[in-house]
């Protein structure tokens, strides 16, 4: 399955214009604050109205010229927002079972338990979100996003809310996890270091426009913007990581 995006959105003086050719693996969208990264995710989710076209495998999610605009609840996109947004009045299990369709309640709960086990947080099933650490919350949020068997995953700043120690661990965990899940994934981050761990394709977004698209190697060797150049001059030899090997 591949994800192709061609979006156009105007809000006051802000103009978001993003066209990305089809891609199957992980795309990391990086850019400074205010570049339009979260707005891009909202457009993809369908909670923000926009013009253009989004295609996922054979499914058209948005085709404004043909009047197609699939509502968010029918897009089947797994979404993990910045602060995870777990439903805090529900247990971890109910969070993950919320989106599971079909079968009896017991069957849906079993499915949710399996997902939590797969992500190594099965023991937290009866806790409330307030009692979880940042890393645990993120795994639960990921389990919840996977519960709908999503066609694609969208992650907004998955590492920003974590402290430095948890960050490295979660970054590695996410890197391997996303490859296993095997659906197109878009990760939004203000930190190119996340791209180093996660991305096969990096999209640099600045002021609503795509400043550069390419592998990490491309970005490092031919930075097309001061933002990219500044990052690689601060990190001259980034440690090789699993995410980097997929870069071409």
């Amino acid at each position: 399955m591949s994800l192709a995006i061609d979006l156009d959105l105007r809000r006051g003086s802000f103009h978001l214009q993003v066209a990305l050719p089809p891609h199957e693996g992980t795309t990391v969208v990086v850019g400074p604050n205010g570049a339009g990264k979260s707005t891009l995710l909202e457009c993809m989710l369908g909670v923000q109205r926009s013009e253009g076209r989004i295609e996922l495998g054979g499914n058209v999610l948005l085709a404004s010229e043909e009047g197609v605009d699939v509502p968010p609840e029918e897009r089947r996109l797994g979404y993990v927002p910045q602060r995870y947004a777990l439903f805090r009045h529900m247990t971890v299990l109910r969070n993950v079972a919320f989106g599971i369709k079909g079968g009896s309640r017991a069957e849906r709960d079993d499915r949710a338990r399996d997902l939590l086990d797969e992500l190594g947080v099965g023991h937290l099933a009866r806790r409330k979100p307030a009692a979880l650490s940042g890393g645990e919350s993120q795994r639960v949020a990921l389990a919840r996003a996977l519960s709908i068997e999503p066609r694609a995953l969208l992650l907004d700043e998955p590492l920003a809310a974590l402290d430095v120690g948890a960050r490295r661990r979660v970054r590695d965990f996410l890197g391997s996890r996303l490859r296993e899940v095997g659906v197109p994934t878009v990760v939004v981050s203000h930190d190119l270091a996340d791209a180093v761990a996660l991305a096969e394709r990096v999209v640099v977004l600045e002021a609503g426009r795509v400043a550069q698209v390419g592998s990490l190697a491309t970005l490092r060797n031919e930075p097309a913007s001061p933002f990219v150049a500044a990052f690689f001059s601060e990190h001259p030899e980034p440690a090789p990581s699993p995410g980097d090997t997929g870069a071409a």
């Binding site: 909202e42 989710l45 909670v47 509502p71 968010p72 609840e73 029918e74 897009r75 089947r76 996109l77 797994g78 979404y79 927002p81 910045q82 602060r83 947004a85 777990l86 439903f87 805090r88 919320f98 989106g99 369709k101 919840r144 996003a145 519960s147 709908i148």
Partner: peptide, 14 residues
């Protein structure tokens, strides 16, 4: 938290 409402929509809730 608007994100909780958005997530609920993405999980298939009307």
């Amino acid at each position: 938290d608007g994100d909780q409402l958005t997530v609920a929509r993405t999980l298939g809730a009307s």
